[in-house]
C-alpha cells in the first residue's frame, strides 16, 4: 500500500511538473517533449487505479500519434516565439479575470458538492460478475458483440475521413521517371535524322 502511495505521488508530481514545463519552456520542441512525459505519467496513474486499458490507449494514441503529430507541426511551421509572446502582457488582465471567475465557480461547485449516500456502496462493486477479467477483456467483450454495429460504423466513418483527405489534397504531378527498358530499346533511327545540306543553304 505504501508502495502504491509512493508511486502515486511520484507520478502525480512528475505529471504536474512536466505540465508546468509544457507552458513554461521557451523552446516549443521541449514543450512537446514535456507533453509526452506528462502523458506517460498520466498513463502510470491510470495503471495505479486499475484502468490498464486507458493507460495503454493513452500511450498508443496520445504519445504515439498525437504528440508525434504535434512535434511535426512544431518543427515544420517554424513559429517565431518572441512574436507570439509579445501579446502576453497585453492579454494578462483579461486572462487573469477569466481565471478568477473559473476559480470562484470551482469553489462554489466543490463546496456545494453532495454525494448521495448510496454512492459509497456502489463504488466498491465495479462491474459485478466480470471481476475475474481484466478491463481490456471486459471492454472487448461488449465492443465486439453488443456494440459491434457501432464499432463497425465508426470504422466506416474513419474510412470516409481518409477518403476525404485523399480526395481533397492528393495531386498527381507529372513526374518524369527514367524508363531503362525504353532507353535500351531505342534505335538510332528513332531520334536521329540525317539530311544532306548543301553549303550555304542552311537547314
Amino acid at each position: 500500500m505504501i508502495l502504491q502511495t509512493l508511486a502515486f505521488y511520484l507520478f502525480a508530481a512528475v505529471l504536474l511538473a512536466s505540465a508546468v514545463m509544457v507552458i513554461a519552456s521557451r523552446n516549443p520542441v521541449h514543450s512537446v517533449l514535456f507533453l509526452i512525459l506528462a502523458f506517460f505519467n498520466a498513463a502510470g496513474l491510470f495503471v495505479l487505479i486499475g484502468a490498464e486499458f486507458l493507460a495503454m490507449i493513452l500511450v498508443v494514441v496520445y504519445v504515439g500519434a498525437v504528440a508525434v503529430l504535434f512535434l511535426f507541426v512544431v518543427m515544420m511551421l517554424d513559429i517565431n516565439l518572441t512574436e507570439l509572446r509579445q501579446g502576453f502582457l497585453q492579454y494578462l488582465p483579461v486572462g487573469a479575470l477569466i481565471g478568477l471567475v473559473l476559480a470562484i465557480e470551482l469553489i462554489f461547485v466543490v463546496t456545494g458538492w453532495q454525494l448521495s449516500p448510496e454512492l459509497a456502496g456502489m463504488a466498491q462493486a465495479p462491474a459485478s460478475g466480470l471481476v475475474e477479467h481484466s478491463n481490456t477483456a471486459q471492454l472487448g467483450e461488449i465492443l465486439y458483440t453488443r456494440y459491434a454495429f457501432l464499432f463497425q460504423g465508426a470504422g466506416v466513418i474513419l474510412l470516409i475521413a481518409m477518403m476525404g483527405a485523399i480526395v481533397l489534397t492528393l495531386r498527381h504531378r507529372d513526374i518524369k521517371r527514367q524508363k531503362i527498358s525504353r532507353q535500351v530499346a531505342q534505335k538510332p533511327g528513332d531520334t536521329i535524322e540525317i539530311r544532306k545540306i548543301r553549303p550555304g543553304e542552311g537547314v
Partner: peptide, 22 residues
C-alpha cells in the same frame, strides 16, 4: 449512439462532396 454514428457518417461524406471541386 447509432443516431450519432449515422449522422456523422452522412455529414462527413457530404462535407467532402461539397468541396469536391477543390
Amino acid at each position: 449512439m447509432s443516431l450519432y454514428i449515422g449522422l456523422e457518417m452522412q455529414s462527413l461524406a457530404l462535407y467532402v462532396c461539397a468541396a469536391f471541386q477543390r
